[in-house]
């Protein structure tokens, strides 16, 4: 029904452009409902204006990322208001 819905692994490449860690295995806590999950288990919507990672339990927007050319400069906009925390494992 929602053909643009992907699983959380689909956002790994985009998050990998921003963070120097494997982000699909990072743990998130939802600021809306408190559910914890791996980023790879969240729901990803690849909208043409930006990528939205949503909580699989309550649909709250956990992470919002837009990559565009504001002011003629390539830039990432990252909104993490929807996560209570992100736990990122150091590479071993």
């Amino acid at each position: 029904m929602d053909e643009q819905r992907l699983d959380g692994n689909a956002v790994g490449g985009l998050l990998g452009e921003i963070f120097p860690f494997e982000m699909t295995s990072a743990e998130t806590a939802c600021a809306g409902c408190g559910a914890t999950s791996g980023v790879g288990a969240a729901m990803v919507y690849a909208h043409g204006m930006g990528t939205i990672v949503r909580c699989a339990s309550c649909d709250n927007a956990l992470i919002r990322i837009a990559r565009h050319n504001g002011g003629g400069m390539g830039q990432y906009w990252l909104d993490l208001r929807g996560v209570a925390y992100l736990k990122i494992e150091e590479a071993t």
């Binding site: 053909e3 643009q4 819905r5 919507y45 909208h47 204006m49 930006g50 649909d59």
Partner: peptide
């Protein structure tokens, strides 16, 4: 008429 989704419909 393209459809863009930022969340469930």
């Amino acid at each position: 008429f393209p459809v863009l989704s930022a969340g469930p419909t």
